[in-house]
Design a protein around this nucleic acid. Structure first.
Lengths: 249, 249
DNA sequence: CGCCGAAGCTGCCCGAGATCAGCCCCGCGC
DNA sequence: GCGCGGGGCTGATCTCGGGCAGCTTCGGCG
């Protein structure tokens, strides 16, 4: 992606994201990179964190897509959110000490493991980074809230458009989308489970969006043809993503 | 409602709640109480925080019930969550610096205002409390996730039972419910907006729950007649509420 | 080249839950 | 005592989205 000046290499997606919240010092950036030193790969379509499992690790997603979801007794699945590079995986499980949801890799992914004690240490020694983490967690919650509103009150069309626009914005933030399109490795089943629809109905909905000339989603790529119309349809307000320029704090 | 405790006597609901996460020292307890010194009343049915408003205060609810919700263009309302004593109001707005949702008092309430700089100071000087706050925020998010799953995948009956059980557990934690019942100042319209149902359908659902001998909700009071059956019906797993005994950390 | 499985796509029917319309109950003010 | 209004409650219809069944497309592989 676009090269950015940093200590030695390009900053991680997490650093890039947190920089939106606050201007980071060199030392803080370095600390963040150190936190993400322990890299590890994980294959597509496999679970990274399992509900009710004992060890409570958290990860920072470096590359690829993941999703968090819950399984129900009746076999249903609700995808809570997708994660893209720079996002935390299982931060909540770490704090609640019993993972209440599953996280699976959508594509092959690269993650950085963050051991609990490292995180605690970071919070103790770097209050500004602690605030930034709190911000990231709040942003995640805001996204979940937005999904809740979508499933609770928005029509399938509106909901779908909203989800796509959100993903677009999030990916732009970490440099993984251009103005009108982005690579989207989700299949219709997964996306449907996120939107609280059946794959069948999602398919029909996507067709409608296509026929209206708003967007297409084919072969792993989303193309947004008429962004203003999409925004209007979805009633999209991106305030909850807080994609502003950093401020001195 | 029990009158608010004097600062020297009983601990605040927040203290009580955080004590579940970690054992608090005297000094930390005192610090928490100090954080909540600035008390203020707010009348029922009025907004405390408005979407997109400029000032970003956060509050700790001391007494009464509140709810956070979003309004949609079409006039619809989605209640995201209810807040009971010990819960934060608008913590997310403070961090994102633009409130993305509304918070209204359900009953007459007493809140403690937490100015942004106070919070930042707390995080900087009391890392253990910072972790506890992160825990509380994570718990809130876990509840929102649970609601998302409910609205997305659970039937109205199951969803309703689940919500009631959750409220019961939360209220027990802060000493506002006994084993089989609790005071619930919500009306059916508000509850329906939380569950993503119409008030009409919620009414029918409540009737069913009543006829099955599981629970009743009348005149501001919820009575749970058959807790095990309710739990079974709702598939209620309270892990996400993390109501465990404190551990030494 | 042809088989096979996964994902995408579509038509048809049906049921859960929304919508509409209206009644009852109870507390309150005059 | 009586009218009024808000919340609770109910029956009758409508409709959106789910369920089912099946077809197409495409890529991998023997």
């Amino acid at each position: 992606m676009s090269p950015t000046p940093a200590s030695s290499a390009a900053p991680s997606a997490l650093t890039r994201k947190l920089a939106v919240f606050t201007t980071l010092t060199r030392a803080e950036e370095a600390r963040l990179e150190r936190l993400q030193a322990q890299r590890r790969r994980h294959p597509a379509r496999t679970e990274l964190l399992h509900e009710a499992q004992g060890d409570h690790a958290a990860f920072v997603l470096q590359d690829g897509w993941a999703m968090s979801y819950k399984l129900l007794a009746d076999g249903g699945r609700q995808v809570v959110d997708f994660q893209v590079p720079g996002d935390f995986l299982g931060l909540r499980s770490l704090l609640l000490r019993t993972s209440d949801h599953n996280v699976a890799a959508v594509t092959d992914i690269v993650v950085a493991e963050v051991p609990p004690r490292e995180l605690r240490e970071l919070v103790e020694t770097e209050p500004r980074l602690a605030m930034a983490l709190l911000w990231a967690a709040s942003r995640d919650e805001a996204m979940v809230v937005e999904h809740l509103v979508g499933i609770g009150r928005r029509s399938p069309m509106v909901r779908t458009a909203h989800q796509v626009l959100e993903l677009h914005q999030r990916l732009r933030l970490v440099g993984l989308a251009d103005d009108g399109s982005f690579a989207c490795p989700l299949n219709q089943y997964v996306l449907a489970d996120a939107l609280g629809l059946t794959a069948i109905h999602l398919n029909r909905t996507l067709r409608q969006l296509r026929e209206r000339g708003l967007m297409t989603f084919r072969k792993g790529r989303v193309e947004i043809h008429d962004a203003p119309a999409m925004m209007a349809l979805a009633g999209f307000e991106d305030a909850y993503l807080d994609q502003r320029a950093p401020r001195p704090s």
